[in-house]
Design a binder for these strands. Structure first.
Lengths: 341, 341
DNA sequence: ACAAGCTATGATAGCGCTGTCATTTCCGCA
DNA sequence: TGCGGAAATGACAGCGCTATCATAGCTTGT
């Protein structure tokens, strides 16, 4: 009997009331001490903490959240972990959360809105304190769930449409536009575009639209396209660059859907002996660190992925309780002139 | 009064009992339906589901977990999100979890064991169904918490030491050893090593040790080192390559702590006009996709990060309830001959 | 025709914690 | 000396769900 007691004590059953009993105080006192809430005398605190440490007591947040009707969970739904930009956003989120005791619960949607809806439902079941999503495209039901939840919602990456609550990101449309202006100013006239699946990556499409507008205003247009099915990758960028030049040898600049693709372009040129910039200029999007390390610095546009995640969290934390009307934070972008365009 | 009721109904208070009341069944019946558990007649199911959909009822998992003393959370503690390998492991974890209704809760330790301990405590408070960690280095307390918890514990990346429960990864020591053998066979004799912070990345050190052993068995040694403070990066790899060659122009092969660094080496050679392989051979570790897309395919060793995450989850799911004695899964590695060494 | 064994449903009692509203103790100051 | 009020603690009633055991109807087989 004695042994059984000890086993039970040590494994499954170290609860608040156990601690309270051994420390000769009420449960609520222990609870207050664990949460640093309410006035507690130093003597009691130490006596209780001694017991806590001895038993290795870890408060059960599930019970706590149920009782207080609030959790310290932040739901995060991102489209993919393969595309480097999302881990970077996650990094920003983690950085913003550091020091708080909020925990992100991360799900991946694979760019599928129905999967996103299912994920949102599943995350909502944990009564998160806030939700962070990528983009502002959601199914009707998902949108409704988000709106009705009343919690803070941050929609990241994109600020081209009105958010439910908070949007943090940049205008991809005007980023594309400014890329176009920049390249026109540098004297390029025969534009090629190398991209990937627009259905998944709607923001790439927005940048393309912006680019076209800039060209059109200058009486120009994209004269050749090479689009790859599926996701962006450096290998795809390499292949599509070869493809583009084969289709239309007159292009003097290739604009890529992102840096992964553009770096593939650089590699193709290096290995095919094509003079970058003189023969073909290359312009990307994102400003990945890698672009900086290339034999020639990649010309691109920096988006601040880390910052987007971090600021989203900060905005949420500013007032966890109430939405304050749609709020848009523009994290901007910055042209990196580089050496490839 | 009527309006107030409706508001309350629609926002905060869509609970099991509410659904049960409107569907004219008991709470437990609704609970069974939501969980697909126990025998339920088709008629009842449909009647209840109609109410569920009408109210937009989402079960509260917090309450559910408390009542059932089990959660569908998987705690994940990784050292970093900056190093591409961990997002890939995460991807594997998500892939393995797909189709189950488990949710990963991810925390980042920044390679700090004390931070890891704090994180483990914090994750444990959610009574996770299992924990996934990187590496087998933990503080004493962390180790104790993990052992005592009784839940499944997977320690990833590394199988060079005995795990608490499950280990999935590869022997970095023998990977390093085999790199050495491979390069010796190819005729290289003057080895340089380019690495990053060993305190953070203990596995890189293991690979180095393995390399040295292979060299030593062949009567060789590493004749020059260039180590960068801090984390690995392509830029650092570039700089350290220049540095290495300046220090000892006789080296004919550089082994890098990982592909990020090695790719930097490739870039340095490309931009300094150094003949890769003829003048300096380059060998990495990880087998990143990017290595394949380079102008010359990177010679390296493939570690299967995605698989490590996926298999860890599968092993855990095999028997969620009980540990079955230490279990080690070797996901192996594979030499990619490539064109740089 | 009736025990045995289904299937479908319900009543009850918590899970481990926190919010709310007391209650007690102790201090400073008139 | 006594009183107002802050500091310290506690009792109690849930939070929203699920485990457990019980109950009612309905087939079966012999």
């Amino acid at each position: 009997m004695k042994e059984r007691r000890r086993l039970a004590d040590h494994k499954s059953k170290v609860t608040l009331s156990e601690v309270a009993r051994l420390a000769n105080v009420s449960e609520i006192t222990v609870s207050r001490i664990m949460r640093n809430k309410g006035p507690i005398s130093e003597v009691t605190r130490q006596r209780v903490m001694a017991v806590v440490n001895k038993l290795g007591y870890v408060p059960n947040r599930i019970a706590g959240s149920l009782a207080s009707a609030r959790s310290n969970i932040i739901g995060v739904a991102i489209p993919s972990l393969s595309n480097i930009v999302f881990p970077e956003v996650l990094r920003g989120i983690h950085a913003g959360l550091k020091g708080t005791d909020f925990q992100p619960v991360v799900g991946v949607t694979d760019y599928d809105l129905d999967a996103e809806e299912a994920l949102i439902r599943s995350l909502m079941a944990w009564k998160p304190a806030a939700m962070i999503l990528a983009g502002s495209d959601h199914t009707g039901s998902a949108q409704q769930i988000l709106v009705q939840s009343g919690i803070r919602i941050a929609e990241l990456m994109d600020i081209d449409v009105e958010p439910i609550d908070i949007a943090v990101g940049l205008s991809h449309r005007s980023a594309g536009y400014d890329s176009g202006r920049h390249l026109i100013e540098r004297g390029y006239r025969r534009f090629g575009y190398i991209g990937h699946n627009w259905r998944d990556d709607r923001r790439a499409k927005l940048r393309y639209d912006g680019l076209c507008q800039a060209l059109s205003e200058a009486g120009l247009q994209v004269v050749a396209h090479s689009m790859v099915e599926g996701a962006s990758s450096t290998l795809a960028g390499r292949a599509m660059t070869a493809n583009l030049l084969a289709n239309d040898p007159t292009v003097d600049v290739a604009v890529y859907s992102n840096d992964d693709m553009a770096i593939g372009g650089v590699f193709h040129c290096l290995s095919a002996g094509i003079a970058i910039r003189e023969r073909l200029a290359i312009f990307g999007f994102n400003g990945l660190e890698l672009g900086d390390a290339l034999p020639m610095v990649l010309s691109t546009m920096r988006s601040n992925r880390f910052l987007i995640g971090k600021i989203a969290v900060e905005k949420i934390m500013e007032n966890l309780a109430h939405r304050s009307g749609p709020c848009v934070v523009d994290t901007g972008y910055e042209i990196i002139a580089g050496e490839t365009a």
